[in-house]
Design a protein around this nucleic acid. Structure first.
Lengths: 343, 343
DNA sequence: AAGCACACTGCAATCGATTGCAATAGATCA
DNA sequence: TGATCTATTGCAATCGATTGCAGTGTGCTT
């Protein structure tokens, strides 16, 4: 068998079928002006020879790459590789969704030090549009994208004033629910672990304040501790800040499940009972949250809807339509880490 | 400001600089035959106008995409989206590594039902090479790749006979260490949770048997339970199989940390003490393993070295060299879930 | 002064597919 | 029979950058 002869080109197929390249091209794309028989014959020959259209040539000619660049932003400080389980979740959904729509996905983990990805991905025609995940601390590059008219959507927090579409969870609502739940469990002094310099986390902090205010509890600024998204950060922050400075703490609201698990670990290690002495609620509902001990009460983000919406909005924008920002509802999931009067 | 005028092409830059396209092209690529002054001038003009080479046109002409497709294989059954934290880890490393080497990364999550990605990614010139993660249950498509002469590397388990390069952890060694450790802690009846139809897991099972044999313990086939990679699977399997059928179980070796955590949850819920009554060891050392309670003893895979090696081998292969299979050493990390005589 | 090497630069072909427009042939109509 | 359609097909330009090869001009050699 003459395995892997030589890569076939459209010209080869056309020659074999005894037609011109134009006809071959049209036949392969199911263009109806081509005679049905001719079309079939060409397609048959193409299939027999495993012919695949050269994506590069097509892109050049059609000026469409059929590729979306997904950019995961990082913190200037931590510079950690993708590792938040939540990111992976949404990434998976986006990947599936893009595939279903016939798009390829170019993945980039952008250290903040990188040069600008607008020109890299868009101007150079590598991608037809961008999905940016995690605004983080407000990134000027996102504004530039908008100004340059690049089709893109952002996963993150919306203030309602951004000149670009943002899809994200209703962080404030979710946090408010979470903290109200803690209050209902009898918590009076609740710490907030999360870096409010991230817009999303800032929203969660506002929700935290909303809930406290509604319960007539004064928010103590000292109870808000900037903490990175990792379990390690939650652990260390709890050890260092919470133990040394604060007593009578009876609740913790963490800005991510990872932070919450780290904090829980620190508490348990020191013999503090969860939830009896300190109740904990996280945010995200990653897969592991149901399986730690005690299992973690958390605010579930709808990653499935999020991913779908990101893709749908972006493609609509690319195809000449409009893309709108949208806030996704979240849902509190009660588990053991916060339930004091459970059965 | 006449923002975003029109996308510049090489021809535009050449005209502005008063040189031919050839000269402009050479100048931008720092070709030394071009006079230094000319080169500078062209580069200056290009920079002023934010000119970016059209990647598509370049690819077409040079026949190189400078893109690597990373394919994540899934189980025929579970069909779950990327979610194993371990995958995310290694994916992050690969992304960074490829970026550093000037390659783009096309990510694909391949459901087993998908058509073949050889033609899609390689024949169509979308990528110069492939990285396949997770052979899973031996996939015939991987063999086809090899037969077709496509440059690619696989992350997984090597039997030493594959006709393609495989990079992976020394699963057998790692498992052997883990189980030997359990035996040393006094365990006599140790369950194995993991799906041995996956080659990597099969290797871990062999290591498990090695350790038992070395300790003169007979391996009971009934103690091996096929379990998917998730915490949920570990939880359910433990509830359903281990509780109902087996008594006097005193150790569990799980094929992944997620499984281990699920199993641990099930045990703790039933009032079984870990590690006193049942000691547990996992595999991977994902970030969360250190922060669950009790923290999880596990076998650490060197994702960093793995990702680097995958990329290095693949690029070497693409550039005409050879790529070789390699087994990476692993390391047992002692934590609370298995230490019975700890301080 | 003629010959020649050297340093640049530009012409034109090329990568592979797509598409506007023209061309052909057979069919239909008056 | 001649004119007008209609259904198909092909010609040739085009997308934007790269590169082999030929061309030009300057300076140096003898």
């Amino acid at each position: 068998m003459k395995q892997a002869a030589k890569v076939m080109t459209l010209a080869d197929i056309a020659r074999l079928a005894g037609v011109s390249e134009s006809t071959a091209s049209r036949a392969l794309r199911d263009n109806p002006v081509i005679n049905a028989q001719t079309r079939q014959k060409v397609q048959q020959i193409a299939a027999d020879h495993q012919f695949k259209v050269n994506a590069t040539a097509r892109s050049l000619r059609t000026q469409k790459s059929h590729t979306i660049a997904v950019i995961i932003l990082f913190d200037a400080k931590t510079q950690q590789a993708i590792s938040d389980p939540f990111l992976l979740d949404i990434l998976g959904v986006i990947a599936d969704e893009l595939t279903a729509k016939g798009y390829d996905m170019l993945l980039s983990t952008s250290k903040t030090t990188d040069k600008d990805w607008r020109s890299y991905y868009f101007d150079s025609k590598r991608a037809d549009g961008l999905i940016v995940i995690g605004q983080g601390e407000h990134d000027a590059r996102v504004d530039q994208l908008a100004a340059a008219g690049v089709p893109f959507v952002v996963w993150g927090a919306t203030t309602g004033t951004e000149p670009y579409p943002v899809i994200g969870s209703d962080n404030r609502q979710g946090a408010q629910q979470a903290v109200a739940h803690l209050v209902k469990q009898g918590c009076q002094r609740i710490a907030f672990l999360g870096d409010i310099r991230h817009t999303e986390i800032e929203m969660r902090y506002l929700g935290y304040q909303d809930a406290l205010q509604a319960a007539n509890i004064k928010a103590e600024p000292a109870l808000q501790l900037n903490t990175d998204f990792t379990a390690q950060a939650g652990y260390l922050q709890t050890q260092q800040a919470l133990f040394s400075q604060l007593s009578s703490l009876d609740g913790i609201f963490a800005a991510s499940d990872a932070i919450a698990m780290g904090a829980m670990k620190a508490l348990l290690e020191h013999g503090i009972k969860v939830p009896q002495q300190v109740a904990i609620v996280g945010f995200d509902d990653i897969a592991m949250s149901a399986y730690c001990t005690p299992s973690l009460t958390t605010v579930k983000q709808d990653t499935h809807a999020g991913g779908q919406l990101l893709v749908a909005q972006l493609l609509s924008r690319i195809n000449g339509g409009k893309a709108a920002s949208q806030l996704l509802p979240v849902k509190l999931v009660d588990r053991q880490s916060s339930l004091r009067n459970s059965t």
